[in-house]
């Protein structure tokens, strides 16, 4: 049971960590000062949530590792994040599409986790949900503005959704670890999140005058440590300091 829980916490904490890292790359490069600050805020929210998830994971693991060591001293094949979040930032449209698809999933997932039979998970979820409610409102708002904006912004937004769509199937996958936790009421059923997610995404895309991508082919593997070529580079940058100066503190 604790092994399943550990796996689940890593999948969650790794996803918020990798996306937080991706958003940090925008720092100082945002399209406007206000957007720059907002993106960095969201990044900090996600990194803060990571501390809580990985902190709990480290305790469950009981091997004397800390959240920091989990973040900085594991290799790509040991990361269990969703493939969606490791995709490169691309243009602002790519970043927004990635954010909106993730935020919507994140929102429904945390809503379910709030009712977890594990009090600690329920507490972290309730705290995170406050932040994520804002994230999803913001990303939906921007998707509508750019989708229903100029010809150029509409085209870029549509391309971004078309490109990322193949990574959305993985959001609702379920394996033995999930099934065991669902049975004990620790986590919501991943497959049950698909319907509300679909509904919200469809509504927002319609308002943005965008069409839902039609592709049904999906790529997965992130939750089992099989990643796209992008994660290795991201970790090389993120983990450089701890790799070069093991145990360095600041």
């Amino acid at each position: 049971m604790d092994n399943h829980k550990l796996e689940y916490l890593l999948r969650l904490g790794d996803s918020t960590l990798v996306l937080g890292q991706r958003l940090s790359e925008w720092c100082g490069r945002g399209p406007a000062l206000e957007e720059d600050i907002a993106l960095t805020n969201v990044a900090l929210d996600l990194v803060g949530q990571t501390r809580l998830w990985l902190g709990y994971a480290a305790e469950l693991e009981g091997a004397g590792r800390t959240a920091d060591q989990l973040a900085y001293l594991r290799d790509a094949h040991q990361f269990l994040n969703l493939l969606l979040v490791e995709q490169p930032n691309g243009s602002y449209a790519d970043t927004l599409a990635r954010q909106f698809l993730f935020d919507t999933w994140h929102y429904f997932q945390l809503e379910g986790l709030q009712r977890s039979t594990d009090a600690r998970i329920a507490g972290i979820a309730a705290k995170s949900l406050k932040e994520v409610t804002y994230h999803v409102r913001r990303s939906a708002d921007l998707v509508v503005r750019l989708g229903d904006g100029t010809e150029e912004s509409h085209r870029r937004m549509q391309d971004a959704f078309d490109d990322l769509w193949m990574f959305t199937g993985e959001l609702f996958e379920s394996d033995a670890a999930d099934a065991a936790l669902v049975k004990d009421g620790v986590v919501p059923d991943p497959e049950a999140l698909a319907a509300p997610w679909q509904r919200h995404v469809a509504e927002v895309l319609e308002e943005a005058t965008l069409r839902l991508p039609a592709g049904t082919w999906s790529q997965s593997g992130g939750r089992h440590g099989r990643h796209t070529e992008h994660l290795g580079y991201l970790l090389a940058e993120m983990q450089f300091l701890q790799r070069a100066y093991p145990g360095a503190r600041w």
Partner: peptide, 8 residues
């Protein structure tokens, strides 16, 4: 502007 004010 309200969203941005919240962040800034």
């Amino acid at each position: 502007a309200i969203n941005n004010a919240r962040d800034v």
